[in-house]
Design a protein around this nucleic acid. Structure first.
Length: 721
DNA sequence: CGACCTCGAGTTCC
DNA sequence: CTCGAGGTCG
């Protein structure tokens, strides 16, 4: 296949190349059910071709893919001819494109047009034929004219009635209902969980697993897959003879052919017992259409099914008929597609990085790809088991997305068809540290692999950088880069060396002006007077982070007491258990570590937990939030995230990093984390803005909430003094 | 002992 | 943000 970036010089060969690529992807998508590129990219190819053909009509040939919807079905199932073709829709990718469509319509019809806005379900289009109310056939869309008979599989889908509901009057002689078969996101998660337990390969996304499930040879497999369905259209329709007669005599009937609008049709389908997505609205004007699209995009992750856009249809059937269709798509409908969140790219390699603890983390080296607002070239794979689970291999085309719209994530491989290129063999975890070549060790029962060489240069750099980091000793101007430089020059072997630094240390070092030397020395000096918990955090004792360090420091007060305490004493501290207890005693038992401590003390470091640093100079604050748990998400105006959390803890509250049943409020600023908001909505945790947060800090009460509706606010002792 | 809540560690990009 | 695992509580 030709590279995606290549451009042919003249229009004739450009058109030819585009046709070849589209034909290739048609085959991948329709026949092999293993697309290599997301729909948006495919659509872009199709649009480039259409544009070129419009510019050079003399080059348009009868076989061009812009004239048909897709490739032929694979022939595993019996072919079904759609007497009314299942057309695809034109796509709009921006509000502007939607606007120009609306403008074109406005020229053809006068007055305000009513539009039905529906969610565009990311599943498989299916046609269901009911004869006298009974389901007789189900077919895939195929190329739009000929699909495949999947009646046996569709019959196992619980949401699809085998018989239409009894209604006033007789059911139509024949009605072809069109809609989307999909797999709910929750069912998809369960399926993959099961798949994992069985040692099978997990599915990449709900759409693919729905497609795979529907194309099973054995319907009992489909039955176990929790598929669902939403109807959105009527294709072929033959009314019952009786309804015709009744209509003629003005009788009391409710035939679908009396529907004059899309909304009336959907309402009829609902009454007939077919599932119709309730997230729809009839609106007038472009502004309202765009508002619906915006809301849909914001809410898409709260739905239990994947959507990839919004379908906008002219509601009035008479108007639809006047607008008509092109050979490929109706002029009265448009699909507004959300920006793609998933992209495919080439996985060049899998490498491992070494952290300060020696943990070896595998990560994917990707052909850079633009996804979710930034170009991604690396993505973590967490650990050996995760790589195995996803079964990604160097050389694979993989699906990449943004987890929570921030962190790149490799979803899984696009597995080539058996007739396609052979995959390389399964990736093996390296046996030696990429930094120091020491053997890597994975203990039985653990998921992580470690480099156990304490002198490993990467580990040394990271350990010292961690000591200087913000949650630890907070030495400004001492990041990983500079630490690496000092370590490389042999100036820095452990954290105690920092406090022996003088201006002379920097002689001969490039990149240091006298100004920055002074700043760094000053920052190191002020680090001598950090509270004990910061020092503990900085030591990098396994399992002991910021919270654990605070617990130890506030329970025991000074370093000597901690070093003197045995495992049992440590484990008796709230928040500390046997694992942390033994990890701490083991750390201080080490000769090497004790000597570092000795030198730190000689260098004049404070080793006591003085007054809490969150308290201002005016003394302690009233404990208005005693016993409460307040989570912060997003960017606030008046506080950094740390300040906001400190404001909560200094008032006696807790501010953990995630929302749970025990959370009393979620404070949201600008761009809050979607998962936190979703969790809070699920658990009915109050969501408050910054103003309400300020009030909460002062009073300890939530605004606009009657007293007693949420009796989880406990107070201990008296507030203020 | 299991369910649930937290914590620690590593992570991406601008 | 995700994963894995420690700690707590019923």
């Amino acid at each position: 296949m030709t590279g995606p970036g290549s451009v042919a010089p003249d229009p004739a060969s450009a058109i030819e190349e585009l046709r070849a690529r589209i034909a290739y992807h048609n085959e991948r998508y329709f026949v092999l059910d293993a697309p290599e590129i997301p729909d948006a990219e495919y659509d872009a190819l199709l649009r480039s071709l259409r544009a070129l053909e419009a510019e050079h009509p003399e080059l348009v040939s009868p076989g061009t893919p812009t004239g048909v919807v897709g490739a032929r079905p694979s022939g595993q199932f019996a072919p079904v001819v759609h007497r009314v073709p299942m057309m695809s829709l034109d796509n709009a990718f921006t509000p502007a494109e939607l606007g120009s469509w609306a403008d074109r319509l406005a020229k053809l019809v006068s007055g305000d047009t009513a539009f039905e806005c529906e969610l565009k379900i990311d599943g498989l289009a299916v046609s269901l034929t009911y004869e006298r109310g009974r389901l007789v056939r189900a077919a895939t869309r195929g190329d739009g004219r000929i699909g495949e008979d999947v009646t046996a599989n569709v019959a196992t889908i619980a949401a699809i009635p085998g018989r239409l509901a009894a209604m006033v009057g007789e059911p139509p002689e024949l009605i072809e209902v069109r809609g989307e078969v999909f797999m709910p996101v929750s069912a998809f998660a369960e399926l993959n969980e099961r798949q994992r337990e069985l040692g099978g390969r997990p599915f990449v996304n709900p759409r693919n697993s729905a497609a795979g499930s529907l194309r099973q040879k054995d319907p009992s497999v489909t039955a176990g897959r929790a598929l669902s369905f939403w109807a959105y259209q009527v294709g072929e329709l033959v009314p019952s003879a009786r309804s015709h007669a009744a209509k003629a005599s003005g009788g009391d009937v409710e035939p679908v052919d009396s529907a004059a609008t899309q909304e009336e049709t959907l309402a009829w389908l609902e009454r007939a017992g077919l599932p119709v997505n309730p997230e729809r609205r009839v609106v007038t004007g472009l502004d309202q259409v765009l508002a619906f699209c915006r809301q849909a995009e914001q809410r898409r992750h709260q739905l239990d099914y994947d959507i990839d856009g919004v379908v906008i249809k002219v509601d009035d059937f008479a108007l639809q008929r006047r607008l008509g269709s092109t050979s490929r798509a109706p002029r009265w409908a448009m699909a507004y597609k959300f920006p793609p969140e998933e992209r495919t790219t080439l996985l060049h390699d899998i490498q491992v990085s070494i952290g300060r603890t020696g943990k070896a983390t595998p990560f994917a080296v990707l052909e850079p790809v633009f996804v979710g607002g930034s170009t991604v070239s690396l993505a973590t794979l967490h650990n050996e088991d995760q790589v195995r689970l996803k079964d990604v291999r160097p050389g694979d085309t993989v699906v990449v997305r943004k987890a929570g719209d921030v962190i790149p994530e490799v979803v899984g491989p696009v597995v080539p068809h058996s007739s396609g290129p052979r995959r390389r063999r399964r990736w093996r975890f390296p046996t030696r540290c990429p930094s120091c070549s020491a053997p890597l060790l994975r203990l039985p029962g653990e998921s992580d692999t470690f480099c156990t060489n304490l002198d490993c240069p990467v580990q040394r750099v990271q350990r010292i950088a961690h000591f200087a980091s913000r949650p630890a000793m907070d030495i400004e101007g001492l990041g990983e880069q500079r630490v690496a430089l000092f370590v490389e020059r042999g100036l820095l072997l452990d954290v105690a060396d920092l406090f022996a630094f003088t201006a002379e240390t920097f002689t001969g070092l490039a990149g240091f002006q006298s100004r920055s030397i002074d700043n760094l020395l000053g920052a190191i000096d002020s680090a001598r007077h950090r509270p004990l918990h910061r020092l503990l955090t900085g030591l990098g004792i396994r399992h002991l982070g910021e919270v654990g360090s605070r617990a130890l420091a506030s329970a025991l007060g000074d370093l000597e007491a901690i070093m003197a305490a045995d495992e049992e004493r440590l484990a008796s501290i709230e928040g500390v258990g046997p694992v942390i207890g033994s990890s701490v005693t083991r750390w201080f038992a080490s000769e090497v570590n004790r000597s570092v401590i000795d030198r730190l003390v000689s260098a004049g470091l404070d080793t006591v937990e003085a007054g809490h640093d969150a308290d201002g100079p005016g003394g302690s604050v009233a404990p208005t939030l005693a016993g409460m748990s307040v989570v912060v998400s997003g960017t606030l105006q008046g506080y950094t995230r740390e300040e906001a959390e400190a404001a909560v803890t200094s008032r006696g509250g807790r501010s953990p990093g995630s929302v749970s049943r025990r959370t009393d409020a979620l404070v949201v600023g600008d761009a809050p984390g979607a998962s936190k908001v979703q969790k809070a909505e699920e658990l009915e945790v109050p969501i408050i803005d910054e103003a309400a947060f300020v009030a909460l800090l002062a009073t300890g009460t939530l605004p606009g909430r009657p007293v007693g509706t949420r009796p989880t606010v406990h107070r201990s002792g008296h507030a203020g003094r």
